[in-house]
């Protein structure tokens, strides 16, 4: 039983591609847009992969056509609302970054780079001699 169709699979793939491409940018607002598109893609994926489409899952007297699977719908509904909350949070984050630093870009973390170079410098230092006298040494704490 295949609940997904080729069109929907392509739409989901396209949304993921666009979303991730935007998330790989440095502008926080673009990252937010990427997040929104990823949210759309994921909700759609949940729905189309989770169960077969059909009549709305509302119990009614008439109708014998198969109903759509309600469980993925409930999950996607939850996901939609959570995505909304997270999106607004990220927008606020981008706004704060813009207010405080004058831009909303994610810069490289200089501290991370410094870790490598600082340790390298320390490593190149000719440290104190490690004299070994019968097993006990008085070397410096590196």
């Amino acid at each position: 039983m295949n609940s997904v169709d080729v069109t929907m699979a392509l739409v989901v793939g396209g949304l993921f591609t666009a979303g991730f491409h935007l998330m790989l940018q440095r502008s926080l607002m673009r990252i937010v847009f990427g997040f929104i598109l990823l949210g759309h893609g994921t909700n759609l994926l949940l729905l189309v992969v989770g169960g077969s489409p059909g009549r709305p899952p509302v119990v009614q007297g008439e109708g014998t056509a198969p109903t759509a699977d309600p469980l993925p719908q409930a999950m996607a509904l939850t996901a939609i609302v959570i995505t909304f909350g997270l999106t607004v949070f990220l927008v606020a984050l981008a706004y704060r970054s813009w207010r405080l630093s004058g831009h909303d870009e994610v810069r490289d973390d200089l501290e991370d780079r410094r870790i490598g170079t600082a340790r390298e410098r320390a490593g190149n230092d000719p440290g104190p001699e490690h004299g070994a006298v019968d097993g006990t040494t008085d070397g410096a704490d590196r």
Binding site: V4, M8, V12, G13, G14, F16, F20, L45, V49
Partner: peptide, 13 residues
């Protein structure tokens, strides 16, 4: 990004 898109498409199918 494109590779992930292809992966997700295949996964969905």
């Amino acid at each position: 990004a494109g590779a992930v898109g292809v992966l997700v498409t295949c996964f969905a199918l």
